[in-house]
């Protein structure tokens, strides 16, 4: 089966005030259908850039991005995006945010309403549909952002540190929610984080990105299941240590 997403020799340079900066160099990464890959890297690395390239929001300055073997021409609903900051449109209610994609696609009003209601229920927020984001908690906003991305029935979810600004308990709940959604809908997930434990909890594989310029240092499979025994297993501890030392911690 062809890869849901493939980055082949991808590099990205941009022009800053101090001259050209190389954010990513020679990145190779594949994402199989329904695979959950966590991208680990230090803050200020090229993780968000890599995600934007995967989404088709930026065009690589070297290499190419493929989806099912075809070059990605630009952004599209089949690659849903969930961001950490400014995750929701503040001028639309929770429902309005979730309906955004279907509305642009031309779905009828009752159809999108049903879709929004179903998705808001799926992320555990059926009663918050008519609230504006300013009246939602940080965790609730991320739930709505997930629902909004799911409304396009994406093949791939691209998530940029979506839980980084949540408290520990809410983050745990969100991780469980994400795993539940993933198990049920089976999209591929490319999940950017700087938290090693989060990566090892969620991912089928972890890919570790170096600091600027970003290149993939290594990728490792993470064994399942993720019960308490596995968490304490020596292999998991070794992998965690390897990731931490690669991040320079």
């Amino acid at each position: 089966m062809s890869a849901a997403l493939e980055l082949r020799g991808v590099g990205f340079n941009y022009l800053s005030r101090r001259g050209p900066v190389s954010a990513l160099v020679g990145v190779d990464l594949t994402l199989a259908p329904s695979e959950f890959v966590c991208l680990l890297g230090p803050s200020g690395g090229g993780k968000s850039t890599l995600l934007a390239l995967a989404a088709g929001l930026l065009a690589p300055t070297a290499g190419q991005v493929f989806a099912h073997g075809r070059p990605v021409p630009g952004p599209g609903v089949e690659r849903g995006l969930v961001l950490q900051k400014h995750a929701l449109f503040p001028w639309r209610t929770a429902r309005g945010n979730v309906e955004f994609g279907p509305r642009l696609k031309g779905s009828s009003a009752p159809e999108r309403r049903r879709c929004a209601e179903e998705l808001l229920a799926a992320v555990g927020l059926p009663e918050c549909a008519d609230r504006y984001p300013s009246a939602l908690s940080e965790g609730q906003r991320q739930r709505v952002a997930l629902a909004r991305a799911l409304a396009g029935e994406p093949e791939i979810l691209l998530m940029d540190e979506p839980f980084a600004s949540l408290d520990a308990l809410t983050r745990r709940q969100m991780q469980e929610l994400l795993v539940a959604v993933w198990t049920q809908r089976r999209p591929s997930v490319l999940f950017v984080t700087h938290d090693v434990d989060e990566a090892l909890t969620l991912g089928d594989r972890v890919a570790v990105l170096s600091a600027c310029p970003g290149r993939i240092l290594f990728t490792r499979g993470v064994p399942r299941p993720r019960d308490a025994a596995a968490r304490l297993a020596p292999e998991t501890a070794a992998l965690r240590a390897e990731c931490l030392s690669a991040l320079g911690a």
Binding site: V77, K85, F89, G101, L104, A149, G152, L158
Partner: peptide
């Protein structure tokens, strides 16, 4: 972020302008 989110949800050109730049 708003522009990115809107573009991945299918907004471009005038639609992006009307759906993001104007309300924001």
């Amino acid at each position: 972020e708003y522009v990115w989110a809107a573009r991945t949800l299918g907004a471009d050109g005038l639609r992006l302008w009307w759906e993001v730049y104007v309300p924001r």
